[in-house]
Amino acid sequence: MTFKLIINGKTLKGETTTEAVDAATAEKVLKQYANDNGIDGEWTYDDATKTFTVTE
């Protein structure tokens, strides 16, 4: 399955996707991606669209 991350950061905005077997696995990968890029904020997840959003 494809999961999307929408980034609403102070210095970085955009989106990325990852392939994962489930939402929990995708969340780990996407949170690591955000952490690697210095993004720390509030996370939400929409199961209907398989989209995570992080807002700083």
Rank of each mutant, 00 (worst) to 15 (best):
D36F: 07
T17M: 11
T49W: 04
T25R: 07
K10W: 10
L30I: 03
E42F: 11
A48V: 12
T55G: 04
K10P: 09
T16R: 10
D22E: 04
D46M: 04
G38R: 06
T53S: 06
D40C: 12
L30G: 00
T25D: 09
E56L: 12
N8R: 11
N8K: 12
A24S: 11
N8F: 12
T11Y: 14
T44I: 09
F3E: 02
T51M: 04
G41A: 02
A34Y: 02
Q32N: 07
W43F: 05
F52A: 00
G9N: 06
N37T: 07
T17Y: 15
T18S: 04
E19A: 07
M1S: 12
K28D: 06
T16D: 03
D40T: 14
T44Q: 11
T25I: 08
K50A: 06
I7L: 07
V29Q: 13
T18N: 02
T2L: 14
V54Y: 02
T55F: 08
K4C: 07
N37W: 14
A34T: 06
E27W: 14
K50V: 03
L12P: 05
Y33A: 03
E19Q: 14
L12N: 09
D46H: 06
D46Q: 05
A26E: 00
T18I: 15
K4A: 06
K31T: 05
F52C: 01
A34Q: 02
G14E: 12
T17R: 08
T49K: 07
N35T: 14
V21R: 11
D22G: 04
E27Q: 10
E15R: 07
N35K: 15
G9Y: 07
T51G: 02
Y45W: 04
T44R: 08
K28E: 08
V21L: 13
D22Y: 03
K50N: 07
K13L: 08
D36N: 10
G41M: 02
I39P: 01
E27P: 00
G38W: 05
D46N: 10
F52P: 00
T55K: 06
Y45F: 06
I6H: 05
K13I: 11
F3W: 08
G38M: 07
F3R: 01
T11D: 10
V29I: 15
D40M: 14
Q32K: 13
D22P: 01
F3A: 02
Q32M: 10
I7A: 04
N8D: 09
T44P: 00
E42P: 05
A24D: 10
A23V: 13
T2F: 11
Q32C: 06
T2A: 07
I7T: 04
K31S: 04
K10Q: 12
E19I: 15
A24L: 11
Y33C: 05
K10H: 12
G38I: 03
T11N: 14
N8T: 08
Q32E: 10
L5P: 01
D47V: 11
M1H: 14
Q32L: 07
Q32D: 09
E56Y: 08
G38V: 03
A34W: 03
T53F: 08
T16L: 15
V29T: 10
I6E: 04
T25V: 09
A48G: 10
E27S: 07
D22L: 03
F3Q: 01
T2V: 13
D40V: 15
T53N: 04
K50T: 04
N37K: 13
L30F: 15
K13G: 06
K50C: 07
K50G: 05
N35H: 15
V29E: 08
K31L: 07
K50Q: 11
T16W: 15
K31N: 04
T11Q: 10
D22M: 03
T16C: 12
A34K: 01
D36S: 10
N8I: 14
D40Q: 15
V21W: 12
K50W: 06
L12V: 13
T2Y: 09
T49H: 06
G9D: 04
G41S: 01
A48H: 13
T17L: 08
A48L: 12
A24Q: 12
A26G: 03
N35P: 01
D36A: 10
G9M: 14
V54R: 00
D47P: 13
V54C: 06
D40A: 13
F3H: 04
E27T: 04
E15M: 13
Y33D: 02
T49L: 08
T11M: 11
Y33N: 02
A23W: 13
Y45N: 00
I7P: 01
M1I: 15
I39M: 04
A26M: 02
W43L: 03
E19R: 13
W43A: 00
F52G: 00
T17G: 04
A23I: 11
K50F: 10
L5M: 05
D36Y: 07
Y45A: 01
A24K: 12
K31W: 06
M1Y: 15
D36V: 09
L30D: 00
E27F: 15
K10E: 09
D46C: 08
K31F: 06
L5A: 02
A24G: 08
T53G: 03
A20V: 04
V54P: 00
Y45S: 01
I39A: 04
T44S: 12
T51P: 00
E42Q: 11
W43Q: 00
K4P: 02
T44L: 07
G9W: 07
E56F: 09
D40H: 14
I6R: 05
T17P: 02
A34H: 01
A26K: 00
I39S: 02
Q32H: 07
G41Q: 01
G41R: 00
T53H: 07
A23Q: 12
L12G: 10
D36L: 12
T17K: 07
T11K: 12
N35F: 15
G41I: 02
T11V: 12
V29R: 11
D36K: 09
N35W: 15
T44F: 10
K10N: 11
G14C: 14
T25M: 12
T49P: 02
T2G: 05
G14H: 14
W43T: 01
N35G: 08
M1T: 14
A20N: 04
D47A: 14
Y33M: 05
